[in-house]
Design a protein around this nucleic acid. Structure first.
Lengths: 193, 193, 193, 193
DNA sequence: CATGAATGAGTGTTCATTCAT
DNA sequence: AATGAATGAACACTCATTCAT
């Protein structure tokens, strides 16, 4: 448990952390350039380290991907309750939160596609996203449903998956606006009386 | 010039045609199992033929993929005008037609994912789908918009793309119902006044 | 023995011969374009026949190559004694005959290279050229040697091989003139006193 | 920067270098046996390494071929000026140098054939040989021509090409002596008055 | 601990050759 | 006899992953 103030971790710790951050930055860059399937060697080269180092820190590709996006996923997860408290209505909060999620996905080219992949190597990634975000999404949905604003038969997992899908493979397609499509989806949730 | 019903084509033709069908069936199966990127060798094995046979019939992967789905795409394209004529309202026709398309995509696991692929090798596939279906979808959208039932700022390409995305990677995910999600999307199109 | 005037060979014979000539022409063209290794299918296509037809007429590639060049090789072989009789000196006759051979090789792009090939598939080709031309070349060499014009320690096979080599792979190399190099070689044969 | 005799290069280097030498030896052997087109797998097997190792060390086939012959080509190039200084006459120097080149080519069966190849994949090989040897050959030719010993209308490239050709495909042909034929060629260069 | 050399399975693709029709 | 569909060996090349140094 490396708390900031601890006296236990000597220089080493700082170094290692710096190193890991270099790795994550390099991976993020590689992901943008070549998708989440970017060759390990590319990432290593970008980071200026050997490939072995990457495997040491992140035994599985999913580990690496998760680490790269952890902060943003966490931030997104935390924003849910906040928005619910501050927005006018639950449905508005949901829309805003979904907007946040879309912004995240759309700027991380290749991520949404990776989330679709049923390859075993991305299982952990899948799981992480779900663990963190499904509850949040579900909470927002429930609040909106409880307020009578939307139908109550759509779950967090399903909505999240749909949003992820709508954001996949958008890379340079000027005729397709993922954000708009997601808005349509959210609009479609409205209770039809 | 293969006249309808003519008995002109020599015996060979019959054999070759049968073989080609075997190929298409095998390819379809392989696509379901491994996506549209299924190794040529796998497809050949499934069909019980040599790899060369596949290359003979379908020089390019796109040729194969298109051939596999051609009939259904065509049927889908033709259904558009028909539905428009027979359904109660344009929006109803649109919904029904979209349902048809989703049924097609959802049962062809792997197809939707391939349509997302920006790989050059699938360019022709992409083009084929777009050429055939975008006009139909656009026509339905326009009719519904003209009737004042839906917003008029969503184009055929965009909607088709969104639907395709919603249907991608669904393979065995019991918690996600692509059909429902697409319905949400279509519902979201409704004119919000 | 299908003599022209025989009454034995009905139409069939004429057809078959015409067919075979078509084959040879097509092969010759293909050889020029792609070398003596031209794909069988290419040749068949050029000839407008099926591949099987080629295999029927020429079971081995060497058979085909030999057939293609037979006339010219024979003509070359026959020219030897003629030149010996008509030219001023045996060495002059040798030079002229060699010139003939070089003309032949140089215009048959790819042939010289094929003659070098030690691939078993060209064994018969090799043998044919040797059987026909080595004796002629040897005769000319012997005459010139007997006349005291050239050294007597170079044999027909060896000289032929050297010439063939000098003509190989010349295809479009403007800085290399095979003819000149062969002339150098022949000049080098001169008795050095 | 590998200084002479320095102990700077880390241990690894020694291993890698040894390995590379193994590779070069294996490649040389494979080239002798199957020509410079020897399958990568064969070379790898001979060397007792995986194919990937070869691609790591020599990304392109030309890289490999050049590396295999570099030392000897360089030695040959350096011998030119030396012989010119030490031999009795320029023509003698030329003859000796050519002898060196022939010795090299003849023992590297398959090399001469590769030099003939117009395949794009051997472009770099071709260029390397030419860059290194044409100037040397040209210098010797010019010196002999200046001394009035030989004709002055044959260039370095042309002579080198002719020699290379004479040495091609000699593999186990006991009736053909490339060395003798080249001598004939050189003899043929003598000024004919 | 880091390094990066080595491994080798996996895949696309070409063509000579055979053989059912 | 002719056809051309089918076969399958052969080869190049890429990368994830392991492990000796």
């Amino acid at each position: 448990m490396p708390e900031t103030g601890g006296r236990t971790s000597p220089k080493k710790r700082a170094d290692a952390r710096r190193n890991e951050q270099t790795l994550l930055d390099a991976a993020a860059a590689a992901f943008v350039a070549s998708g989440v399937d970017a060759p390990v060697r590319d990432i290593a080269t970008r980071a200026g380290v050997g490939m072995g180092t990457i495997y040491r820190h992140f035994p599985t590709r999913a580990d690496l991907v998760i680490a790269v996006y952890r902060h943003q996923v966490d931030a997104c997860a935390k924003a849910g309750p906040t928005l619910l408290a501050s927005s006018g209505t639950p449905h508005a909060a949901l829309a805003e939160w979904v907007g946040l999620f879309v912004d995240f996905l759309v700027t991380k080219h290749g991520l949404a596609s990776a989330l679709q992949s049923d390859s075993a190597r991305f299982e952990a990634l899948h799981a992480y996203f779900l663990d963190r975000l499904v509850p949040v999404c579900a909470q927002l949905l429930e609040a909106a449903a409880a307020a009578g604003e939307i139908r109550s038969d759509v779950g967090g997992y399903e909505l999240l998956r749909a949003i992820g899908n709508l954001c996949a493979g958008v890379e340079g397609d000027t005729r397709y606006d993922a954000r708009r499509m997601v808005e349509l989806l959210i609009a479609g949730l409205r209770r039809s009386e």
